[in-house]
Design a binder for these strands. Structure first.
Lengths: 338, 338
DNA sequence: CTGAAAGCGCTTACAG
DNA sequence: CTGAAAGCGCTTACAG
């Protein structure tokens, strides 16, 4: 048996006023509508019994839950978790709560998460969409549910997004490796066709072209990329390309797999091989040698994401509410490209 | 303007039946109550318009939201995230959804998260409580809200929990370091008085006593332990104790700080210093040398957590529903204690 | 300044 | 086999 939950009706009865009045007091709408005496009496009683409103009922009635869902590829990833932290604060300041979850870049899982929260009437979504998520995003837009994409986007959908200029950022990164005197610089990536991956690939290709260097790309099947397979794939690529003197990885988890391989093969960094990662990671500072990385501007990303979502939450005219932002990454040069 | 949401009443009108009947069809309670013809008609229409029930309303009416909250110290930590993954699956199989969040071991933040979800009437909680969370846990119990603690617990509260035998696990770990011939083995920990930390300290002390070795304990102030301060504190401890030949860390993030210090001081592992971590981490497999660690049995922990919570969700008699489980950790010996 | 009443979208005991 | 009606706990337009 649950301890009977207290409702507004109970408070009204106990204090001898109407539920209307109680509701006004609770929601601070009492100002010119309720006498100070009544306000004090009700507030005192509420504190006394520790009343907490049922937010399910409130949400049902008002149509607002004040919840924003932050749905990212992997909340364990430093990149996503640090943005989540910042977003949480911003959300709070604006009267919203942030709930986060990981899609693992799995379309089916993402769909389920979306349903989970849509059915519970959350107010808005911030999403790193997996491949094949176009329909879901379109539906959100049709239903006028606030949504902002980030990290990647869909070219043919008119929706707010915050991404970085992957192409230019990668171009800059690969150039720095060539700048160290490398000639045969490989690009290790996944076979995902997501916008951010395609941008990074273009950046690499542009740098290679500019330096008249060979295009050495290894695309690792996207599924199972975080498992052993990445290590094996990189190993065989390395065996097939003995002349490599530089490796650039398109994501931090690929870099980790690559470091494992280089270690297994006792290849010294940066002596025999320069290494650079797209996306930073805690490990890269600790590793011997420390690993250079392209770091994304998490503060600005979080700023833009919240700004963009708030515009929609505050119900600006649809077209006006679409904000598409592109930011630049910054290169952190460490020992691995020294 | 939102596209008008469809409700059960709309479906009832459109199909010419009552809301009662629609509700029965939706909830598969139609079996002997509704004719097959009506069932088919309603189901067809529902599919056609893509109706999704408002779970806020359902929750308000039934008093069940089918949501379990998994509130852990840090969801970015491999230990917690791998348990979260397992729990999610188990929850799903039992008709529940799992929502996770990070307390950062911050009492105030934990309180806010608890309120956030309690006010929204979630069905149960799994919590790694921060210090000073006794009252909140007691309140949950009084309110008959299902709750299971894990990783740590409060001795004087009768509530379900799942923890590991920190004392024995650490004893075993420190013994293995002595087994490698070390004599001056330090224990680096936080000054937190949480049960799991106290257990780990006792395990170290027991091992030291048994080997007639000196007790060399460094307690790092808990606040800011994940920041720079840990590195500085460990450095000064190292300076003050030049004779050390082994270091055991009470958590994986302390180990990382320690590795940074050892690297800065060019102390070779395991030649000059054996290193062992309580709690494993991805980094420890990748580091040079690989780092030995005490690994917690995540599968069994997840099993027990769900079993324990389900018992309460299914409303077993209160006293019967309390399950307190203690599991053993397993030692993974790698190069750092080689 | 205050309250009676309708309604958000569901479920379910009850009557037929 | 089917439906009218009450009720979960809120908010708010309206009347006084």
């Amino acid at each position: 048996m649950k301890k009977k939950k207290i409702s507004i009706a109970d408070i009204a009865k106990a204090t001898g006023v109407s539920t209307t009045t109680v509701s006004f007091v609770i929601n601070k709408k009492a100002k010119n509508n309720v006498s100070t005496a009544v306000i004090e009496k009700v507030e005192k009683y509420i504190k006394e019994i520790g009343y907490k409103p049922n937010l399910l009922a409130k949400g049902l009635r008002t149509g607002k839950t004040n919840i924003i869902v932050f749905m990212v590829e992997d909340i364990s990833d430093r990149f996503f978790s640090s943005i989540a932290r910042l977003m949480e604060e911003k959300a709070y300041k604006n009267g919203y709560k942030l709930i986060f979850c990981s899609t693992e870049n799995d379309t089916e899982r993402s769909r389920e998460l979306l349903t989970l929260f849509k059915d519970r009437q959350v107010d808005g979504f911030i999403i790193t969409p997996p491949v094949g998520f176009e329909e879901e995003v379109k539906t959100l837009i049709e239903e006028k549910i606030p949504v902002v994409l980030f990290d990647r986007y869909f070219e043919d959908i008119e929706v707010s997004h915050v991404v970085i200029d992957n192409m230019e950022s990668m171009f800059k990164s690969v150039n720095s490796v060539f700048g160290k005197g490398c000639r045969n610089v490989a690009f290790i990536t996944t076979d995902s066709k997501q916008s951010q991956m395609m941008g990074r690939l273009s950046g690499y290709e542009k740098a290679v072209r500019q330096h008249g260097a060979p295009r050495l790309v290894k695309e690792i099947p996207f599924f199972g990329v975080k498992e052993k397979s990445a290590v094996e794939e990189i190993q065989s690529f390395l065996d097939a390309n003995p002349g490599l003197d530089g490796m650039v990885f398109s994501t931090n988890y690929l870099t980790k797999a690559g470091l494992k391989v280089l270690k297994n093969n006792k290849i010294s960094i940066p002596g025999d091989m320069a290494v650079l990662s797209f996306d930073d990671d805690e490990l890269f500072e600790l590793y011997t040698p420390t690993i250079s990385a392209l770091s994304q501007p998490v503060e600005s990303i979080a700023d833009k994401l919240m700004e963009s979502l708030l515009k929609q939450l505050n119900g600006k005219a649809e077209k006006d509410a679409i904000i598409q932002t592109e930011l630049m990454g910054s290169l952190i040069e460490r020992e691995s490209t020294g």
